[in-house]
Amino acid sequence: MNKVIPLKAHQDAAVAVFRDISLTIQQRLDSWDFAAGRTIIDHLTKFLRKYRNELGDTPFGLELTQINDPSKPELTPRAITRANTNNASLISLDCELRILKISPLNCSMNLSESILSAASTGTVIAHYENKSLVRFFADCLTARCINLDDPVYPPGRIVRMRYVANQYRLAIRDHYRHRVKYWQETDHWADRTRRRLYSRLGSCSKTEDIFHRSLARWLELHLDGDVKSKPRDTTGDEPDIQITELGGRIFLVEIKWLGRNEKTIHDLKWLKGAMNQFGKYLSKQPTVTSATIVAYDARSKDKFEALNHVEEVEDGCRLIEECAGARVPARGDCMVFYLESTTASQS
């Protein structure tokens, strides 16, 4: 019998289900019912769209549960603003958007992603960021975002830079150009003139985290795949970022940095060690399709240009296969990005 393949419209429908927020939540939380969760998220989206002009751009968090308690009061925009008047609070809701309880978050009024992400341990939290965006956290990880301007489309201006999952390298390069190269978002320089990176910044306790968080968020928004960032409580072998394509192909990203931060120095020997470690990890993971080491280079321009590279894919980005005698594994590659420390006009 000849194998037939589904119609394009059905394949698109499968991709839509794969990207469904409720399914991503179910993937992370067994207790979450996928179908009932779709209805809850649908109701919440309609509620937020209806009242977003009243709610404005002030962020708040809502915990979503699948309990049904008709005795509780309904969620209203007034209840949200009242609960967040003095301190940021988390409002727990039942499946019909009734208020179960209000618990304070210990963060004064600066409600950040990391606080809500941490609060989502074992549960689901919707983070209303502004009139146009609501982000869902499930068990400490971002599940997905909804564009409140039009939920059919992904949030914001991201559409023009959207890639399928296996083109994640292009998305990494976009991220470098738009967020890292001139420290546009990452704000990684502790001392630009001496080319010294921060050893910690805000809630990022390591230099890697500064790049990792920004890149993970970028990939979540720009790839048609499931992007999972390193769970906060695991150590050791866990890759920094795991991207899963519809159909199950897996891609890994490992983030490193070179140069000097406020405490230590990472030179090529350190990158060599990272490559060897990555090779061992890949040999234990036969199901990984490909893996990429992304190294942000804070060393001097001379040292970056002296790298033995196979290709300079764009200004400030080099692909290397070998480093101080260590080779990139067969299923892997290594992209080194030069961190500019002067603006285009200064240079």
């Binding site: 289900v17 399914l23 499931d226």
Partner: peptide, 27 residues
């Protein structure tokens, strides 16, 4: 395809209940 993708980051398989729900969501 959906099940394989779903199970990549989990140590448990997709439950039958979710599988049936996914099928209907697809339709």
């Amino acid at each position: 395809d959906l099940r394989k993708s779903f199970e990549v980051t989990r140590d448990k398989p997709m439950s039958r209940r979710t599988l049936v729900q996914v099928f209907f969501a697809l339709l």
